[in-house]
């Protein structure tokens, strides 16, 4: 929790600045949009956080989002599957993707960057092949299943503001992730694998199985995320659905305090990191004098500042700890 304070301050600063610069920022409508987008991207980021925790990387998230995103309407409309069958199939497929990629990393000893980069290309290619590059949409039907992506949960006594449905998914996933990482043996061991794979191995921690587990959780959440995305957006185009989402997810995780060298990170931080990204994109549209073309530059700059200040804080803390250590 302590580690998330820095990023929380950054989020607060951006929120306050945007609220001052744009009177519409704090409108119920806009806040709902922000919550929904943060939830959607946050789920992907929590997933990649597990992989980063083990000092790995998953670049295939965009591909999995795409595959899940186009398969959901495809299975429902083209193949005539029921929503339950469709969701089950998507989750099973994501699970299989994760186990496969994780095994290649853990047992095949292939670098995760390579495995998941190939995954990214393959999954998008498969998505385009299945659909022959046709856009897949719900065709105005399936409002029931789409609720998980674009639904609103009214608050009793509050008018004009409702909780976007994906927030529910995010909260459940975040709580489960936190419990897993902080309260279970496997969560503790997963951190150990990232901290020092050697020490973990020499302690009898099943390193390979934990790595596979991390990739499996990541792909599962990416697949579920893709499902939510398409339910929100209504249609998906195989050639660009989910483009760059792996990078947004990784950026949010890094902003939230995950170290790419592994072993460190908090779920709360990741969710706040995802929120920072979404508020920034929103602010660029809402603040009149910010040119939309500057979007990527601003996001890149903020990530850099976030990571840099985090690193400086870390060094400061480390040097203080060292001088104190000398005293003992």
């Amino acid at each position: 929790m302590k580690k998330s304070i820095g990023i929380a301050i950054i989020l607060l600063a951006i929120v306050i600045a945007t609220a001052i610069l744009s009177p519409n920022f704090l409108s119920a409508y806009n806040l709902e949009n922000l919550l929904r987008r943060t939830a959607l991207f946050g789920i992907l980021s929590i997933g990649v956080g597990f992989v980063i925790l083990t000092a790995g990387i998953d670049l295939s998230i965009g591909g999995v989002v795409c595959l899940a995103g186009i398969l959901t309407p495809y299975l429902l409309t083209q193949m005539g599957w029921t929503p339950t069958e469709t969701i089950g199939a998507i989750l099973l497929m994501s699970l299989a993707i994760g186990i496969l990629q994780g095994s290649l990393v853990a047992y095949g000893r292939i670098q995760p960057f390579l495995v998941t980069l190939c995954g990214l290309l393959i999954f998008r290619g498969v998505a385009r092949g299945i659909t022959m590059d046709q856009t897949q949409g719900f065709q105005g039907k399936f409002a029931g299943i789409r609720w998980i992506g674009n639904g609103r949960i009214p608050l009793p006594g509050v008018d004009g503001f409702a909780i976007p449905a994906p927030v529910l998914s995010l909260v459940i996933i975040a709580v489960l992730a936190m419990v897993f990482l902080n309260r279970t043996v496997w969560g503790r061991w997963m951190k150990a694998v990232g901290r020092s794979p050697n020490a973990a191995r020499y302690s009898g921690v099943p390193v390979a199985r934990l790595q596979i587990l991390a990739y499996t959780i990541c792909s599962l959440l990416a697949g579920f995320g893709g499902l939510l995305f398409v339910c929100d957006v209504g249609s998906a185009q195989p050639s660009d659905f989910g483009n760059f989402y792996e990078l947004y997810a990784i950026a949010a995780a890094v902003l939230g305090g995950y170290r790419l060298s592994g072993g460190e990170g908090s779920v709360v931080g990741v969710v706040i990191g995802a929120a920072v990204m979404q508020v920034l994109r929103n602010a660029i549209v809402l603040v009149p004098w910010l040119p939309d073309t500057a979007e990527f530059a601003v996001i890149g700059l903020v990530i850099l500042i976030g990571v840099l200040s985090d690193e400086l804080l870390r060094r400061f803390a480390a040097s203080r700890a060292r001088t104190q250590a000398k005293g003992v």
């Binding site: 309260r183 043996v185 901290r195 050697n198 020490a199 020499y202 302690s203």
Partner: peptide
């Protein structure tokens, strides 16, 4: 290199194996 997670506390290092022996349904 092989024995310790240097950045982690004494507790996390010393309990890494024992927690699994004491766990209930995988919970520490």
């Amino acid at each position: 290199r092989d024995g310790l997670m240097l950045e982690d506390s004494v507790r996390l290092n010393a309990s890494i194996i024992r927690i699994s022996r004491e766990s209930v349904f995988g919970f520490i």
